[in-house]
């Protein structure tokens, strides 16, 4: 298999942890809440899924348990940020540290153990194509993840629910005046973000590399956070960014295998560098920020 077809075949799977977590964070941020705890929520989801799958609960059960665990952790954040009106940055970092700690704690007995992955489901015909065939042979989670992406995009863009979430993020006072429960909607958005981060962690630990190692999320939560900004809070661009960074991480592997010297640290820094540049570019331009940004992001809402 050539390096190119290797990357094309694997990039969706590599993108999945970024994509799922970033989509969840996108919804939370669209409602006006900045949750910096993604890395910890993913780590918790990863360990919960791994333990459940290892105890032969199966992958479906593992994903459900992971999603619920991370959503529960995100509700702790939501309670602090929304009910207690604590500083969102501090609260996000707190549950991030808590999640990473719990993950390491629960995973201690599972260090270096493995679980079975998931089989690939191929699209008949298309998966036999030269070069790009691998793209059409993915595990069930990738297919479901792509469907979920489509659903989130459509919900945010076309449904009333999506409109309300965006309104709450843009102008919570106006949304409240219209009779919407701002705090309730934000709780929901944050919990959805936790659920997705849990799925992302579960995918990383039980499907993508089905082996437990402490700290296995390895900064993918931070990349997901960066992606949301990089994508200027647009669903389509999140998908593009996630697949791009997935492909970049694979090209690193392909280059190593091929004996090509790539500066892997520079590659690993790329998402962060790009995010800083994008953040500078959109923030500098008031009009761009108005179109793209979320006006009330990170600001507490109270009576």
């Amino acid at each position: 298999m050539s390096a190119l077809s290797f990357i094309i075949a694997g990039m969706l799977a590599a993108a999945m942890p970024f994509l799922l977590a970033a989509l969840g964070e996108l919804v939370a941020e669209r409602s006006g809440v900045l949750n910096l705890g993604i890395e910890g929520m993913m780590a918790l989801g990863a360990v919960v899924a791994f333990i459940v799958v290892r105890q032969s609960g199966g992958h479906a059960m593992g994903f459900v348990a992971a999603g619920l665990a991370s959503a529960a952790l995100s509700l702790v954040f939501a309670w602090l940020a929304l009910a207690v009106r604590a500083n969102q940055v501090a609260a996000g970092l707190a549950i991030g540290i808590l999640g990473q700690g719990l993950s390491a704690l629960f995973g201690k007995r599972y260090e270096s153990l493995t679980v079975p992955g998931l089989p690939k489901l191929s699209v008949p015909g298309l998966s036999d194509l030269p070069l790009v065939g691998g793209l059409f042979s993915q595990d069930a989670v990738v297919w479901l993840g792509l469907l979920a992406t489509l659903a989130i995009w459509a919900t945010l863009r076309f449904s009333k629910l999506g409109l309300v979430i965006r309104a709450v993020g843009e102008n919570p006072h106006a949304a409240r005046a219209l009779g919407y429960n701002v705090i309730g909607i934000r709780y929901g958005a944050v919990a959805f973000g936790g659920l997705m981060a849990g799925f992302a962690g579960a995918y990383a630990a039980t499907v993508y590399t089905p082996l437990w190692a402490e700290g296995m999320i390895a900064g993918r939560g931070w990349i997901a956070l960066a992606l949301v900004v990089f994508a200027t809070w647009m669903t389509g661009r999140v998908v593009f960014g996630a697949v791009l960074f997935g492909a970049v991480s694979l090209s690193q592997l392909a280059a190593q295998a091929g004996g090509v010297a790539l500066n892997s640290q520079l590659l690993a820094s790329l998402p962060y560098i790009v995010t800083i540049l994008v953040l500078g570019a959109i923030s500098a331009n008031k009009r761009l920020l108005k179109i793209n940004g979320v006006a009330s992001l990170g600001e507490p809402f109270g009576r």
Binding site: L36, Q265, L266, S269, I273, G280, S283, A284, G298
Partner: peptide, 26 residues
């Protein structure tokens, strides 16, 4: 970035930390 470009220092300082870790590794 914050003063001239109006960009949130929260995200930029965080990203700079992640880059620093890679620089150290390099």
């Amino acid at each position: 970035w914050r003063v001239r470009l109006n960009a949130s220092e929260i995200l930029v300082t965080l990203m700079m930390s992640l880059i620093a870790a890679q620089l150290l590794a390099y």
